[in-house]
Write a protein that binds this DNA or RNA. Structure first.
Length: 328
RNA sequence: GCUGGGAUAGCGAAGUGGUCAAACGCAUUAGACUGUAAAUCUAACGGCUCACGCCUUCGUAGGUUCGAAUCCUACUCCCAGCA
């Protein structure tokens, strides 16, 4: 197969078996895997993020374990790296295979997201000046914005961007971004990338998906996921940051904090952990985690559904056929 | 066997005469999403209907009342205390 500017994306909800497919495809089509996972980028977060590094075998993978806990990492950080790596893989005459459940990242790559100074942004700057109220012509930092109440954010947003935020006025994250965008005058646009992409979605009946998620939660606890979280907090990782990651680190993290597990000697901790294992609180937390991951999988599916170009496949064989056709 | 407490939608749980198809939480389902995305936010959620609306629900069966998830009677089951 000669080198060509084509990439394969394997997407789908968590626990659908994307990695397995990706590895098989990499083997069959001379590929390398580029992980599109916003949590596996962090070192030391292994069990909770489900880094099955062994699963890759001989296959080369990228963008896993590329930064330290607590480091800021955003879509554009990922995009910058991913673009470089994709080029690199092309240069080596191989096929980049993007595998991951972080749909936004995959979309950003396939659609070519780019930051741009926008005239609209300038307009907002004008608007600030026109407020005539010098005290409010302030550039708020993220830190400041994070501390604000919904009402404050709404107020500032209204001053800056007027009516165009009708949409998500109860969503602090969105409001903060809208404010930042207005302040910086930067906007994200799309520039068609010069490669072709085929997006394959791993499809799974809902009930099977859920039971796979549940099983995986169980086995991760068996693998020492609770201990991992305790260890991270113990070693000084900011619990606030950790829990902000959501799911395993959010729910287990909060559980660990509430039960003040990360204190005292390793010995004492171990005993406490064992005692914890089957306490009603522990069981409850475990169930809560499972449900949270169900909801996450649903959110992922909602996201993916908006992209009609994704080709959904239940069995690997037919996905493989699709890819063969595409690479021809 | 006696006494007390209780039975509410898939689950948990409010409601103790009208404004109750019944708060709230969970689950579930759908949606949003352009530098935090495993995050953040929105909605639906007894049945039928696009909808006004209609129909059937609060353990079961009767009763009181203009009107009952709410009061009365009997029955069934559950829990606690006493035997």
């Amino acid at each position: 197969m000669k080198s060509q500017r084509k990439i394969i994306c394997i997407v789908g909800p968590t626990a659908s078996g994307k990695t397995g497919w990706g590895v098989e495809i990499a083997k069959k089509f001379n590929g390398e895997i580029v992980s599109a996972d916003s949590r596996q980028v962090y070192r030391k977060l292994d069990i909770g993020t489900g880094k099955d590094l062994k699963e890759y075998g001989e296959i080369k993978y990228h963008l896993i374990n590329i930064c330290e806990p607590e480091e800021n990492f955003t879509m554009f950080d990922w995009l910058t790296e991913a673009k470089k790596i994709v080029e690199d893989i092309f240069a080596r005459g191989k096929v980049p295979i993007i595998v991951g459940g972080t749909g936004l990242y995959v979309q950003g790559l396939c659609e070519g997201f780019q930051i741009q100074k926008s005239p609209q942004g300038q307009l907002s700057q004008e608007k600030i000046k026109n407020q005539n109220d010098k005290s409010k012509v302030k550039n708020y930092s993220r830190q400041e914005l994070d501390k604000m109440s919904l009402e404050e954010l709404q107020r500032i947003c209204l001053q800056l961007t007027a009516y165009d935020l009708q949409l998500d006025k109860n969503n602090p994250r969105r409001l903060i971004r809208a404010i930042e965008r207005a302040q910086s005058g930067e906007i994200v646009t799309k520039v068609k990338p010069d490669f072709e992409a085929l997006q394959i979605g791993v499809e799974l009946p809902r009930d099977i998906l859920y039971s796979r998620i549940d099983k995986r939660v169980e086995s991760r606890f068996d693998d020492g996921m609770l201990e991992e979280v305790v260890g991270l907090i113990d070693s000084g990782v900011d619990p606030k940051w950790l829990t902000s990651l959501g799911l395993e680190y959010g729910i287990i993290g909060n559980f660990v904090i509430e039960n003040s597990l990360p204190a005292g000697s390793a010995e004492a901790r171990k005993i406490k952990n064992c005692k914890m294992e089957n306490s009603p609180e522990f069981l409850k937390m475990k169930q809560q985690l499972k449900f949270a991951i169900h909801a996450y999988a649903r959110r992922q599916l909602t996201w993916f559904r908006r992209f009609p170009e994704i080709v959904w496949r239940r069995d690997f064989k037919s996905a493989e056929k699709e890819i063969k056709k595409f690479l021809l």
